[in-house]
């Protein structure tokens, strides 16, 4: 009988205590929420609530500081890696985790992320790649795929006008300063388990002074892609993952 099962002692999975009870503003099915959850769980497992500072981006995750119960610093659009550098350099005993979207990191913030990685800042960068600007209403991002329709590529992205999609992790993996570069996803429970392990390793390696940990999450944007959450996950699997293959690109 279900009633006998639902007892506190039988709980095998519950919402992390590091997550606040504020309802998340994200669209239904948005990967941001799942990545927030993984980050909360990893921070809880590592017991670092009192010595971690997160940096929130400008974009859909701009209100991230309402959802995770740690200290947060909000960066200007694209500048999280520089803000993270400022924090980490003056507070070497803090875990410093920057969280950015694809417009934030790979468009306006390209210089900052490349130089932070090239300096090997001992920080973790979480990079959400959903191939679109969600917050502003679905415009093209640097990682928008060729042919992908967005508010600013209504006929589909064209190389001759909009150039090529950006393989960010491949670039970061080239920089000697990065020690761990991986591409993960959160669309299936298997992917979530794998992503959690990767994020934990990333945070531990950065804290151990091995250099920059760069964790890309290939993600969905159901409102921007104009698909239901489950269709978005399917579309991502068939279109994004072949171009942005999952797995570790570097673990030195």
């Amino acid at each position: 009988m279900v009633a006998e099962i639902i007892k506190p002692e039988n709980i095998v999975y519950a919402k992390s205590k590091m997550l606040t009870d504020a309802p998340m503003h994200y669209c239904p099915g948005c990967s941001h929420g799942t990545v927030h959850k993984i980050l909360a769980e990893v921070a809880e497992d590592l017991g670092i609530q009192d010595k971690v500072v997160g940096i929130t981006p400008v974009g859909c995750a701009v209100l991230l500081y309402s959802y995770l119960d740690i200290d947060w610093v909000e960066a200007a659009h694209g500048r999280a890696p520089a803000v993270a550098t400022g924090i980490k350099r003056t507070n070497p005993d803090l875990h410093v985790i920057a969280y950015q979207g694809d417009g934030d990191l790979a468009a306006i913030g390209t210089s900052e992320i490349i130089h932070a990685c090239n300096r090997g800042e001992n920080i973790t960068v979480i990079f959400i790649n959903n191939g679109i600007y969600g917050m502003t209403g679905g415009q093209m991002a640097p990682t928008t795929l060729i042919g992908m329709k967005t508010a600013t590529t209504p006929q589909g992205r064209r190389v001759d006008i909009n150039g090529y999609p950006f393989k960010v992790s491949e670039i970061m993996a080239q920089l000697p300063g990065t020690s761990y570069v991986t591409r993960q996803a959160v669309h299936t429970s298997g992917a979530v388990r794998q992503a959690k392990k990767a994020l934990k390793k990333a945070i531990e390696k950065a804290y151990a002074g091995k250099g920059t940990s760069f964790v890309e999450f290939v993600a969905t944007c159901s409102s921007g892609w104009k698909l239901s959450p489950t269709e978005a996950n399917k579309w991502m699997t068939e279109n994004m993952l072949p171009f942005y293959p999952l797995g570790d690109l570097k673990d030195s």
């Binding site: 200007a76 803000v83 400022g86 003056t90």
Partner: peptide, 17 residues
């Protein structure tokens, strides 16, 4: 830093703490 933009944002980060 790599630019004045980065510099002022590094200041912002350190000042936050």
């Amino acid at each position: 830093a790599e630019s004045e933009v980065a510099s002022i944002n590094m200041v912002y980060g350190a000042a936050s703490t």
